[in-house]
Amino acid sequence: MRMVISLLAGSLFGAGLLLSGMTDTTKVQGWLDIFGNWDPTLAFVMGGAIVPMFFAWRLAEHRRPLTGGTFPAPSAPELDRNLIIGSVMFGMGWGLSGLCPGPAIASISYGGVGGIVFLLAMIAGMYAAPAVGSKLDRAANAA
């Protein structure tokens, strides 16, 4: 059951990313490029995606997931250094390429050599992340 739900969720996510235009890097960079030919599409995608999730979080109150267990607890409203540094790094890579993790995976069948190179570099970055994170912690403690 959990496998079927995962497959269905991934399929909807992938279809939505493709149909909304979010696997087209020119549309994503068009949204980020406020001094260029600005493209508002990403805001409509984000808005559209937040609507079902808003109701899903309401439904999740006082209930349990269909397959058992518990819902993820809300994160503490604390902003740590890694959240900020990591988001800056992610945003820089996102702006450079126009790809974030979801679209990078979803477009792998039609993204050509560049798409495969991006995905491999992203996976390498994910491998390196724990080491980079602890290095940042050490640097901050030393300062």
């Binding site: 540094i85 990591g86 790094m89 992610f90 890579g93 390429s97 190179v117 491998y127 992340a129």
Partner: peptide, 16 residues
Amino acid sequence: VIIAGLLVGVGTRIAN
């Protein structure tokens, strides 16, 4: 592409 992929991979994991 490689620099961007590395930044996205490291950044999203550090920022969780």
